[in-house]
Simulated assay, not measured.
Amino acid sequence: MDLGIFFDGLCEPINPGGTACYGYAVYGIGPVGKAVTGCGVFKAGAGMTNNVAEWIALGKALALVRAEKLRPDTVTIYGDSQLVINQLIGDFECNNERLREYRDRCLEHLTELGCVWKAHWIPRDQNVEADHLARAAYVGRIGRLLPERVKG
C-alpha cells in the first residue's frame, strides 16, 4: 500500500499570535481516488505561527495513519512549507525547540510506520485541498471568510 499525504497550516489573522489551523488529505486509505481528510483549530494566541500550524497538520495526518494501524509500503508527503519539508528531510536545521519537538514527533510516527518515506515541497497551487481544509477550520472557528491569497 502506498500513501500520499498533503498537509497545510495557517495562522490568522496575524502571524505570529493568531489562530493556528490545520488541514490534511491522506490518499490511499479510502476508496480509490478519494482522500481521508481532516482539519481543525490547534490553538490561538501567543506562540502560534504558520510554522507551528504546518507541523501540527503533518503530525495529525501521520497520527491518523498510525491510528488506523496501517502498514504502508511507502508514504509520500507533500507540503507547501519549504521550512517544514526541508527540516523533515534534514536539509535545514531545526533550531527552534518547539518546532524541533513537532519535527521529532513526526519522525517518530514515520519510524513507527516502518516504511520507506519521502517528502516533497510543492507550490501552494498544487496543495489546494489541504489549504482549503485549513482555511475552512479557521472560518468555522472565527465565522468569517479569510481574504483570498494573492499569488506571488
Results as ranks from 00 to 15, higher is better:
77 I>Y: 05
26 V>I: 15
75 V>K: 03
113 L>N: 12
135 R>Y: 09
44 A>I: 10
104 D>G: 00
7 F>N: 08
74 T>H: 11
111 T>W: 12
54 E>S: 04
27 Y>T: 08
80 D>L: 09
86 N>T: 00
121 W>M: 09
57 A>V: 10
128 V>S: 12
85 I>L: 04
57 A>C: 10
49 T>M: 00
103 R>F: 00
83 L>D: 06
8 D>L: 04
115 C>H: 05
34 K>I: 08
149 R>I: 01
71 R>C: 12
60 K>M: 11
82 Q>H: 09
29 I>C: 02
135 R>T: 15
93 E>K: 15
122 I>A: 06
79 G>A: 09
131 D>N: 15
20 A>I: 13
37 T>M: 04
66 R>H: 03
86 N>A: 01
78 Y>I: 07
55 W>G: 06
73 D>L: 08
52 V>N: 03
11 C>F: 07
62 L>W: 03
8 D>P: 05
66 R>G: 06
113 L>E: 13
29 I>G: 00
90 G>Y: 03
15 N>R: 05
69 K>C: 10
21 C>N: 13
89 I>V: 15
13 P>S: 06
7 F>R: 10
114 G>Q: 13
14 I>P: 05
134 A>H: 04
80 D>N: 13
143 G>S: 02
138 Y>P: 13
18 G>C: 06
133 L>W: 01
98 R>C: 01
22 Y>M: 10
139 V>L: 08
63 A>F: 00
123 P>M: 12
130 A>F: 05
128 V>C: 07
13 P>K: 07
72 P>T: 06
139 V>S: 04
22 Y>P: 12
121 W>G: 06
44 A>W: 09
78 Y>Q: 08
67 A>M: 08
152 G>E: 03
33 G>P: 02
146 L>S: 14
69 K>M: 12
130 A>H: 10
59 G>F: 00
